[in-house]
């Protein structure tokens, strides 16, 4: 096999091995076989932890399974989702708390991801500039990213503490507020407290991905723009932004999917309060605290469908930027 390449194929032929698909070549067949072999460990792992559990969750959502005895479950059809009984509607879809948690999640995701992208790009542009002490600033900016979500939630919970928190203290000293605000307990402010923590924590993630893209950009466009005396803001929108869009799209999709399943920040900051409850918090509460696996699975399945829908919509809109295995 190896000698056949060396002796029979001209250099021009080798190019076709990686660019044009040509069935029948020995090397090609070997490569495709190796590709599947290389994929196998990942595919097996993902089947075990993602594929099968998803199928089971979907199945359990049509049963009355409970956490203590998951084996003894009866099929009950759509009762976990929606059922009319004795003059009233029951099920996840009839629960106002569920719809509140859907709205909370969407609001949280859109607001926090938008803020993160804007600030992330600004931070990346600054980190990409040449100045003294850049390494120190870059390291400092990465600190929020390195801090576990639980820890950052606790740190902010302490800073936002209504009686002893430094934020209320500062705001009152400056004179912006007259009385301490219960940031995490008051329904008006708690969602903003959650967004504040999430934005703080994830700007570095966006900035890091954008920075990586910025540093791969060709220098000559910028030199040309500088020679032509084009305004930096114009250069950003005309040259930089289009070139970093693929990286930005990847960052946005990961952040958006992350935000839609938000759990930790909300669980630690505001616990089970309905004014900030996300879909994940709702589903887990049903599943673990109320031990109702069937009902919780129904909520999980709905959450999955909503996120799947959002992803499809995103991919449809951004299909030009993200090419799945395309050329």
């Amino acid at each position: 096999m190896q000698t056949s390449i060396k002796h029979d194929d001209a250099p021009g032929e080798a190019r076709s091995l990686t660019t044009k698909p040509r069935r029948g070549t020995k090397v090609r067949r070997q490569r495709v076989k190796a590709a599947w072999l290389f994929l196998a460990p990942m595919l097996i792992a993902l089947t075990l932890v993602a594929g099968w559990p998803l199928v089971r969750t979907f199945f359990l959502s049509f049963t009355d399974a409970s956490l203590s005895d998951m084996g003894a479950a009866n099929l009950i059809g759509f009762e976990n989702y929606l059922v009319y009984d004795d003059g009233r509607w029951y099920g996840v879809l009839a629960d106002s708390v569920w719809w509140q948690s859907v709205w909370n999640t969407v609001y949280f995701s859109v607001v926090s991801v938008s803020l993160e992208v804007v600030f992330g790009v600004i931070v990346a542009l600054i980190l990409n500039a040449e100045f003294k002490g850049r390494v120190i600033v870059r390291a400092a900016v990465l600190i929020p990213w390195a801090i576990p979500t639980i820890v950052s939630a606790q740190m902010w919970a302490w800073m936002l503490n209504d009686q002893f928190g430094i934020i209320n203290h500062l705001l009152m000293n400056v004179g912006i507020i007259d009385a301490p605000i219960a940031w995490t307990a008051n329904a008006t402010y708690s969602m903003w407290a959650v967004i504040m923590v999430d934005v703080w924590k994830t700007i570095p993630f966006v900035a890091l991905l954008v920075l990586a893209a910025l540093q791969m950009l060709p220098k000559d466009c910028y030199e040309a723009a500088e020679v032509d005396g084009i305004h930096p803001i114009r250069v950003f929108f005309r040259v930089t932004l289009p070139l970093i869009t693929p990286a930005l799209m990847v960052a946005v999709i990961f952040r958006l999917l992350d935000a839609l399943r938000v759990f930790d920040v909300i669980y630690v900051l505001t616990s089970n309060s309905t004014s900030t409850m996300s879909m994940s918090v709702y589903a887990r509460q049903q599943l673990v605290e109320f031990q109702d696996v069937g009902y919780g699975s129904a909520a999980s399945t709905l959450l999955f469908l909503i996120i799947a829908l959002a992803t499809v919509a995103y991919l449809y809109v951004g299909r030009k930027q993200i090419q799945l295995g395309g050329d």
């Binding site: 932890v49 993602a50 099968w52 559990p53 998803l54 199928v55 089971r56 969750t57 359990l60 399974a65 998951m70 999917l257 839609l260 399943r261 759990f263 879909m279 994940s280 589903a283 887990r284 599943l287 696996v293 919780g296 699975s297 999980s300 399945t301 959450l303 999955f304 996120i307 799947a308 992803t311």
Partner: peptide, 10 residues
């Protein structure tokens, strides 16, 4: 894109 909660029970 899997929300972790979606596979929690499974």
């Amino acid at each position: 894109m899997f929300p972790q909660v979606a596979v929690l029970s499974g």
